[in-house]
């Protein structure tokens, strides 16, 4: 973990609520090793109503350009302030934080990555790493409308993209758990990130099929590195910090399906 100033290289609107912000270390040093599922804590120092950092998952690591990608949804004053930053400005990060998705050793495995809304962010980095290891990757991304399905071209580089939208403007109409691929395909491992109701529903489908499932949680946190004990999740091992023992948990460890 380190506290580092980054320079914003670009800040692009993906839709009316989400921005893709690409940053590079201000001291030009190479980015340290990072794993899919890890996150950063962004300092929000120009919003008077915001005190704490904002946890943002690592969307992608571009080693060639030495860039870290952050997909930020404008939810409140803190994230709005982050999204307002312009190329050339500085942003301070504590990173890399948290554990990561499990990257299995096998070769023939077939993976399903299920995301909703801005919860798709860490799945791009995960998909890239799985693809690089020669695994077959399917992405299943859901949103209210076509404009909510972000970074489609990026996802398509690393696997097959399936979509659901509530208004039917892209892919199948409905929610991710209703997509026809659940009937047609079998997977060896399922990863999910998004709203809690969506992840619980995905975990239930995975359990019904006897497929291991990992979910990335977005519990409220203060520090992000295991000191404050605010972000705990109830697990089979008691209350665990989402920031250090997670954010990725095997869903069998969680109390969701009890």
């Amino acid at each position: 973990m380190q506290v580092t100033d980054f320079i914003i290289r670009s800040n692009e609107a993906l839709n009316d609520r989400n921005r893709l912000i690409k940053v590079t270390p201000a001291d030009h040093r190479h980015l340290p090793p990072m794993q899919p599922g890890q996150f950063v804590q962004v300092l929000v120092d120009r919003s008077p109503g915001t005190f704490l950092r904002r946890p943002i998952s690592i969307n992608f690591v571009d080693r060639e350009k030495n860039e870290l990608w952050l997909l930020v949804q404008e939810v409140g004053d803190g994230t709005r302030e982050i999204c307002s930053r312009q190329p050339g400005e500085v942003v301070n990060l504590i990173y890399p934080l948290g554990n990561s998705f499990t990257l299995p050793e096998g070769k023939s495995d077939h993976f399903l990555l299920v995301g909703g809304g801005v919860g798709t962010a860490p799945l791009l980095f995960l998909g890239k790493e799985l693809h690089a290891r020669g695994f077959q990757v399917d992405f299943l991304l859901g949103g209210r409308s076509a404009t909510d399905i972000l970074q489609r071209a990026d996802f398509e580089q690393y696997g097959t993209l399936y979509c659901t939208t509530e208004d039917g403007s892209l892919g199948e109409k409905g929610f991710v758990i209703h997509h026809s691929l659940w009937q047609e395909k079998r997977y060896d491992f399922i990863y999910t990130c998004g709203s809690r109701p969506m992840m619980v529903a995905v975990a239930r489908l995975a359990r019904e099929r006897g497929v291991p499932c990992e979910a990335s949680l977005e519990n409220l946190m203060a520090c992000g590195f295991g000191a404050c004990l605010c972000c705990v999740e109830k697990t089979t091992r008691g209350n665990l910090n989402t920031c250090t023992e997670g954010p990725v948990f095997n869903t069998d460890m969680l109390s969701w399906l009890d």
Partner: peptide
């Protein structure tokens, strides 16, 4: 959980 709430200039 939840055990934390951010406030103006504090938590």
């Amino acid at each position: 959980y939840p055990r934390m709430a951010e406030t103006a200039s504090g938590m």
